[in-house]
Design a protein around this nucleic acid. Structure first.
Lengths: 286, 286
DNA sequence: TGTATATTGGAATTTTTATTCCATTTTTGT
DNA sequence: ACAAAAATGGAATAAAAATTCCAATATACA
């Protein structure tokens, strides 16, 4: 029989939590003292619990960028018999979780917590986002989407135009286009230099403009100026009455839902990302 | 090579649904015409889908009161390669609770449109967003959310910190806080002036920092510098191993789902908005 | 800087799990 | 009730997966 001494590095302590929360806690507390690969695995496990629940040792190892044996070591270092034992914890968690979120709220309220309000705000925004996504799903016209992608794919450089509320979306486009190797310029209008930033656009480029009510005048103005010079304009906006529509070669409608005074941006983001990736793929295929 | 004749009883039809709903339907429609043991299994599978998702052939067989081989036969009679293939359907269902978009896609494809690909990209991103939202719903800890709001509400000025991928979120925070009458400063790090922009923060202010893998070093560095000077730090990040966690007074975890190479930001946005509005309300009430 | 110790990668091995095959039983059609 | 076909049980086999082990590498410590 094995003595404690003989167990060496794989030795474990008395822990080995039998539920996910406990495991999570343990991982958190050990985080600092873990060696590189084990820490890497811990991070992976907490980020992708579902992959751990369903995957095989080999699959997970590849995904997480470690060796299969590391998974077993990881499990043992936490006090489990082996990987399979650890995996059980992740599976159990998935089994039991389908408590409706209404349930959650009610539970909180009953417990008399004063955190209810914070959570209900979050639920509100979450819900607005989900509604927006669902709406877009139903309303986007496939051929317009294709045309928008074609327009962007033909462009030499894409100029990104969006202000105020939708600036985040256009800023993200700058990130995504860059990642995808598509030349894109974010018109941030610093120092009111928007017109100058856009001045170099030619008809071989394209403008991607976003604007929702209340339409920021800069966006419409700059888009109009570009269109004037025959630069193709792709617009994302929230109604046919938007000032962008007049100057756009293709336009896509997105109606975001709101909660309180704030509108979601989820659908716009999803659409922007689809445009970006679609453009990259179209270019790749010729 | 096997001929159709030789396949005998194990022969299959052209079906083999690739999602749970389709499978369910198939099972229901076949119910009458199935032999005893297979019917028994069909009933068991619909009653205990989770057992089927997680169990082994031997385990499930025992549970359902049949032989292991019957499970394989069952799967094949439905058109799958074997039990493992069938089990995949049950696992997928548990992974993401939004398998319906596949359905939509299939519909489009059947209709023969050549805009399918564009739409499927959009569906992919939409789906990732919805999954992210749903996950956050299940994982956010109410008391942490409350604490984050309290911290921000006590602050004189909120400094907003976020780079690269998450810059859009923090940019939106700047917009929202401003609208709500909360003094907030966006650390945009123009000209590498981040440290100077943050230098004026005191312990009576607060930092709201966001960072996801791969963590942009600036964000962690600036947050650490602030924490050093006792400025309270509220962090939004994607794992307990984030460098932000060490320096944060309160941190909230958000695990965004991805599609292709891009991660959603929907959950982060919803959370940021809840923080902003929650902060404003907390201030209003006292 | 050199040595002891801990960590890691990867192939070899063992264990578990799915699948196949065939003899036996049950059902179906006449 | 009989023959033919289908279904079933269960052992044998094949495939896949987890685990172990050891050499190579990295890290910590003196």
């Amino acid at each position: 029989m094995e003595t404690e001494d003989s167990m060496g590095a794989e030795a474990m302590v008395t822990e080995a939590p039998d539920d996910y929360d406990g495991l999570r806690m343990l991982l958190l507390s050990r985080r600092e003292s873990m060696p590189k690969r084990l820490k890497q695995l811990a991070a992976f496990a907490l980020e992708h619990p579902e992959d751990v629940a369903f995957g095989t040792v080999a699959g997970i190892a590849e995904h997480a960028g470690v060796q299969p044996s590391t998974l077993v070591r990881f499990a043992k270092s936490l006090g489990y018999d082996g990987f399979s034992h650890l995996q059980q914890i992740f599976r159990d968690r998935l089994r039991e979780r389908f408590p409706d979120y209404r349930e959650r709220l009610r539970g909180l309220r009953d417990a008399g917590g004063h955190h209810v309000h914070a959570v209900s705000l979050l639920e509100g925004f979450t819900n607005a986002a989900a509604v927006s996504l669902e709406r877009m799903r139903a309303s986007v016209r496939p051929e317009e989407l294709s045309r928008a992608i074609e327009t962007l794919a033909k462009a030499d450089t894409v100029y990104l135009l969006g202000a105020r509320r939708v600036f985040p979306v256009i800023a993200y486009c700058a990130y995504a286009f860059g990642k995808l190797g598509i030349r894109a310029i974010l018109i941030d209008h610093v120092g009111q230099l928007g017109p100058e930033q856009l001045a170099i656009a030619t008809k071989r480029d394209a403008v991607l403009a976003i604007s929702f009510t209340p339409y920021a005048p800069v966006t419409a103005d700059l888009a109009a100026a570009a269109a004037q010079r025959d630069v193709p304009v792709v617009a994302i906006t929230d109604s046919a009455f938007s000032p962008l529509v007049t100057n756009a070669d293709v336009w896509l409608e997105v109606a975001e839902a709101d909660f309180g005074a704030f509108r979601s941006l989820s659908a716009s983001f999803a659409l922007a990302m689809a445009l970006a990736v679609g453009t990259a793929e179209k270019r790749a295929e010729g």
